[in-house]
Simulated scan of single mutants.
Amino acid sequence: MAKVIAVEEGLSGSIKSALEKEGYRVVKPGTAEKIDATILTGLDMNVMGMQDIQDKSTVIDASGKTPEQILRDLKARL
């Protein structure tokens, strides 16, 4: 079964394509299904100094990273 990765809207389509090419299933954050990791830009992370934990999946900050770097981080953490 493919790992499910939530990718924040606004991230490059090349990130989604790279993930799908590696066999991951890509969804939008906030879906009702169980996800294995979330990839965010980092721009909206903890702006107010507060944190709401939605699940216990891996979170990867994609800021300034290439799709290849994101894949490497993802593989190392899953």
Results as ranks from 00 to 15, higher is better:
V47A: 11
M1H: 04
S12V: 03
L19C: 08
D73W: 03
R25V: 15
K65W: 11
D36F: 01
L71W: 03
K65R: 12
R77F: 13
G30I: 13
M45I: 12
T41Q: 03
K16Y: 04
A62E: 06
R77N: 10
L40K: 14
A6I: 06
T58F: 13
K56Q: 09
L78R: 01
K34T: 07
A18G: 12
G23E: 08
E68R: 07
L74F: 05
L43E: 10
D55I: 03
G42R: 01
G10C: 11
K3Y: 07
M45Y: 07
V47F: 06
E20L: 09
K21I: 07
M45G: 07
E68T: 05
G23T: 01
K75I: 11
L71G: 04
D73F: 03
R25W: 14
A6P: 08
K28A: 11
D61P: 03
A62T: 02
G64S: 15
K65M: 15
T58P: 00
E33H: 02
S17I: 11
R72C: 03
S14I: 13
Q54T: 07
I70G: 01
A76I: 09
Y24V: 08
K34N: 06
E20D: 06
R77K: 15
A6K: 03
G10V: 07
D73A: 13
I39Y: 04
P29W: 08
V4D: 01
E20S: 12
Q54F: 13
K3H: 04
V59K: 14
K3D: 00
R25N: 11
I39H: 01
A37E: 00
T41S: 14
